[in-house]
Amino acid sequence: METRCVVLDIGGVLEMTPETGWDEEWERRLGLPTGSMHRRLDDIWKAGSIGRITEGEVRARVAAVLDLDAVRTDAFMADLWDEYLGSPNEELIAYVRSLRTRCRLGILSNSFVGAREREQKLYGFGDLVDDIVYSHEIGVGKPAAAAFEVTCARLGVRPEDCLFVDDAEDNIAAAEAFGMRGLLFADNAETIAGIEAHLTRRRAR
């Protein structure tokens, strides 16, 4: 028996995450050359995205690399999370909530250690879908095939039963190569229409 499934990304899809300029502001405060801060922190960002370090270790390493005291470290991390968490895409979230009785629902997100707790507190994503797969929890992110494999296994569905919605073309291409249907997010109207077409097509087969 076929099980219809929709899997969505978070940042740029369920969350709107425009750049706030927090990093440029911190470079100015610290007297760093433009664009240099993230290069200095790149190893930390990569490790945090696949769960190789804890939140506490992120904080300690950021403070050490940028020579921040406790107060400025708190402010730095708060600014980072403010941009990361963005704002909820209320229309799409409400629509996805309406799908609970129609299909299996999942989230697959390239994330950062600490994201689950914050996103659950702010947006309740854990109550929106059947399962959330975070890169920092499984140790691998999109576009790696393993990320899609874990997602399908945890949702108990076949790749061909799934529609994957993401705002990055590389991730859509990887999902399709894995056997999923892909839908590049452009706006809510097109996304909702695409999901409806997927669900209707699945019912008709």
Score class of each variant (00 low, 15 high):
residue 1 M to Q: 14
residue 1 M to F: 13
residue 2 E to C: 13
residue 2 E to N: 14
residue 5 C to P: 08
residue 8 L to R: 03
residue 10 I to N: 01
residue 16 M to W: 11
residue 17 T to A: 06
residue 18 P to A: 14
residue 19 E to M: 14
residue 21 G to I: 14
residue 27 E to W: 15
residue 27 E to A: 13
residue 29 R to N: 11
residue 29 R to S: 11
residue 31 G to E: 11
residue 32 L to K: 13
residue 34 T to E: 15
residue 36 S to I: 12
residue 36 S to G: 10
residue 37 M to H: 13
residue 37 M to K: 15
residue 37 M to V: 12
residue 37 M to G: 10
residue 38 H to D: 11
residue 39 R to P: 10
residue 40 R to W: 14
residue 40 R to Q: 15
residue 42 D to Q: 15
residue 42 D to L: 14
residue 44 I to K: 09
residue 47 A to W: 11
residue 48 G to C: 04
residue 48 G to W: 04
residue 49 S to A: 10
residue 50 I to Y: 06
residue 50 I to M: 04
residue 56 G to M: 08
residue 56 G to Q: 09
residue 59 R to P: 03
residue 64 A to M: 13
residue 65 V to F: 05
residue 67 D to S: 15
residue 68 L to C: 09
residue 69 D to P: 05
residue 73 T to M: 06
residue 74 D to S: 08
residue 74 D to C: 07
residue 74 D to T: 07
residue 76 F to N: 03
residue 76 F to L: 07
residue 77 M to P: 06
residue 80 L to W: 12
residue 83 E to A: 07
residue 84 Y to W: 11
residue 86 G to P: 02
residue 86 G to F: 00
residue 88 P to T: 04
residue 88 P to D: 04
residue 93 I to C: 03
residue 93 I to L: 08
residue 97 R to W: 04
residue 98 S to P: 07
residue 98 S to E: 13
residue 101 T to V: 10
residue 103 C to F: 14
residue 105 L to C: 06
residue 112 F to I: 02
residue 112 F to L: 03
residue 114 G to R: 00
residue 115 A to V: 00
residue 116 R to E: 00
residue 118 R to Q: 01
residue 119 E to G: 01
residue 119 E to Q: 06
residue 120 Q to V: 00
residue 120 Q to E: 09
residue 122 L to S: 00
residue 123 Y to S: 00
residue 123 Y to L: 00
residue 125 F to A: 01
residue 126 G to W: 04
residue 126 G to V: 03
residue 129 V to F: 01
residue 132 I to T: 03
residue 133 V to H: 02
residue 135 S to A: 03
residue 138 I to L: 01
residue 143 P to Y: 06
residue 146 A to C: 03
residue 150 V to P: 01
residue 154 R to V: 03
residue 154 R to M: 04
residue 159 P to K: 05
residue 161 D to S: 13
residue 161 D to M: 06
residue 165 V to C: 08
residue 165 V to T: 06
residue 166 D to V: 07
residue 166 D to K: 07
residue 169 E to W: 12
residue 176 E to A: 12
residue 177 A to R: 12
residue 178 F to N: 02
residue 178 F to Y: 14
residue 181 R to F: 12
residue 184 L to M: 08
residue 185 F to P: 07
residue 188 N to Q: 09
residue 189 A to K: 12
residue 190 E to W: 11
residue 190 E to H: 15
residue 191 T to Q: 07
residue 193 A to P: 05
residue 194 G to S: 12
residue 194 G to Y: 13
residue 195 I to R: 06
residue 197 A to D: 15
residue 197 A to H: 11
residue 198 H to T: 10
residue 200 T to A: 15
residue 204 A to N: 13
residue 205 R to L: 15
